[in-house]
C-alpha cells in the first residue's frame, strides 16, 4: 500500500518537478532525445573492457545531474533493485575471464574485472541518463518530442493515455486493496486466487471506464484520429544544442580524453 502511494506521488512529481529541473531551458525535447540516444550509443561502441573511455561518460552525467538538480542519492535509491540482473550477469565475468590485463608488481587485474566494472558503470550511466532525460523534460513534452521524431502517432497517443490514467487506476486499485485489508488481511502479497479476484474487478471497471471515455471522445467529434496542433517549433537554440552535444560526444568517442592525457606523460 505504501508502495502504491509512493508510486503515485512519484509519478505526480515528474511533471511538477520538471519545471524546476530544466524544462525552463527550453530545449526541444526532440533534441534531448536524440542527444541522449547518441550519447549512450557512442558509449556502447567502446569495448566492454574499456573502462578508461567509459569514465568520461560517467563524469558528464554526474555533472548533468548537478545542472538539473537530481541528487545522486535519489539515483542510487531508485536503482537499488533494478541493476540486480545486470550485476548478476556481470559478476560471472571476473570468475570466468581471468586473462590478465594489468600487472602491478605481481598484483594482476584480469579482463574479467575490467568488464565487470565497465558493465556496472554503464548500467548506472544509462539509468542516470534516462532519469535526466525524463526529469528535465517532463513526460508530456517528451511525448510531443517523440511525435516530432516521427514515432507513430498511435503509440504516442497510447503513451499519453497510459500516463493520464495510471494514477486513476492505481488509486482504484488502492481502494480495492484497502477494502481487503480493512477486513483483516495483513500482508502486501496475495495468493493468486485472491489476487485474481481484485485484478479482474479492476479489469471490469477498466472496461466500463474505457466505454465512457470513448463516448466522451465521440461526443466531442472524435473520428478515429487524435488531432493536435504541433507545438515546440525547432529553434536555432535547438540546433546549437544538438551541434554542441554531438561535438562533445564525438570528442569523447574519438578523441578519448583520458588516453590522450595519459599519452602526454
Amino acid at each position: 500500500m505504501e508502495n502504491l502511494d509512493r508510486v503515485i506521488s512519484e509519478i505526480r512529481g515528474i511533471e511538477t518537478d520538471a519545471i524546476d529541473r530544466g524544462s525552463r531551458y527550453r530545449i526541444n525535447p526532440a533534441s534531448r532525445i536524440i542527444v541522449c540516444f547518441l550519447f549512450l550509443l557512442s558509449m556502447l561502441t567502446f569495448s566492454v573492457f574499456n573502462i578508461i573511455d567509459t569514465i568520461p561518460y560517467a563524469i558528464i552525467v554526474i555533472l548533468l545531474t548537478l545542472l538539473v538538480n537530481i541528487p545522486l542519492s535519489y539515483i542510487f535509491r531508485k536503482t537499488k533493485y533494478l541493476l540486480l540482473f545486470v550485476f548478476f550477469i556481470a559478476a560471472f565475468n571476473p570468475l570466468l575471464d581471468r586473462r590478465p590485463a594489468i600487472n602491478i608488481n605481481g598484483f594482476i587485474i584480469s579482463y574479467g574485472w575490467l568488464s565487470f566494472f565497465t558493465i556496472i558503470l554503464r548500467g548506472y550511466i544509462s539509468v542516470t541518463a534516462a532519469m535526466i532525460l525524463i526529469l528535465s523534460s517532463g513526460f508530456i513534452p517528451l511525448c510531443r518530442g517523440m511525435e516530432k521524431l516521427k514515432i507513430p502517432k498511435l503509440l504516442v497517443t497510447q503513451l499519453l493515455f497510459v500516463y493520464r490514467y495510471i494514477i486513476v487506476l492505481l488509486e482504484e486499485l488502492a481502494q480495492i486493496i484497502n477494502s481487503v485489508k480493512a477486513r483483516g488481511y495483513g500482508k502486501n502479497k496475495f495468493p493468486v486466487k485472491l489476487w485474481s479476484v481484485f485484478i479482474a474487478q479492476l479489469l471490469i471497471k477498466t472496461y466500463s471506464r474505457a466505454e465512457m471515455i470513448n463516448y466522451s471522445m465521440i461526443a466531442r467529434g472524435y473520428d478515429g484520429d487524435i488531432k493536435t496542433f504541433s507545438e515546440n517549433k525547432w529553434q536555432r537554440s535547438d540546433t546549437v544544442f544538438c551541434i554542441v552535444s554531438i561535438l562533445i560526444i564525438g570528442f569523447l568517442r574519438f578523441f578519448r580524453p583520458f588516453v590522450f592525457i595519459n599519452n602526454m606523460f
Binding site: 511525448c143 499519453l160 500516463y163 493520464r164 471506464r209 465512457m212 463516448y215 466522451s216 471522445m217 461526443a219
Partner: peptide
C-alpha cells in the same frame, strides 16, 4: 454538449 457524471472519464487528454 454532454457533461458526464465522472469527470475522469470525460477528461482524457494530458
Amino acid at each position: 454538449g454532454f457533461i458526464f457524471q465522472n469527470s475522469d472519464n470525460q477528461l482524457f487528454m494530458p
